[in-house]
Simulated assay, not measured.
Amino acid sequence: MKLLYLSLFVLFVSCNNDNKETEIKDGPVNGADSNIISKKETQPDSIIVAESLLAKKINNILQAKEENSRWHVLNDKEAKWISGQFDYFITPKRKENPDYPYIAAGDFDGDNRQDLAAVVTDSTQIIYQLVIISDADSSKKINYWKEDILEDAAISTAPMGRIEGTVNEKIKKIELKSEAIHVEYFEKASFIIYWNGKSYNRIQQGD
Rank of each mutant, 00 (worst) to 15 (best):
S138M: 12
I133C: 04
A154K: 05
Q205R: 13
G161P: 04
E67F: 15
K173P: 03
T124N: 12
A55H: 04
I149N: 01
V29H: 13
A189N: 13
P44I: 03
N68T: 08
L116I: 05
E78W: 06
R162L: 12
F191N: 03
S7K: 07
I171Y: 11
D109T: 01
K20H: 14
S38E: 13
I36W: 11
Y144T: 09
D107R: 02
E41W: 06
N17C: 14
E151H: 15
I133Q: 01
I171T: 14
T121G: 02
I163C: 02
F186I: 06
V167H: 05
I142T: 06
K93M: 11
T91I: 08
L116Q: 03
S14G: 14
K198Y: 14
Y194F: 11
I36H: 06
L150A: 14
A55L: 03
I181C: 00
F89G: 01
G27A: 06
Y88K: 14
S38N: 12
K188C: 10
T166V: 07
E184H: 10
K2D: 11
K146Q: 13
R202D: 03
P159W: 04
N75Q: 09
I132Q: 02
M160R: 07
Y102K: 02
T157R: 06
I103M: 00
E23C: 08
T124P: 02
V29W: 13
V131W: 03
D109G: 05
N201K: 12
I36F: 11
N35V: 08
D207F: 04
N60F: 11
A118W: 05
I192W: 01
Y5E: 08
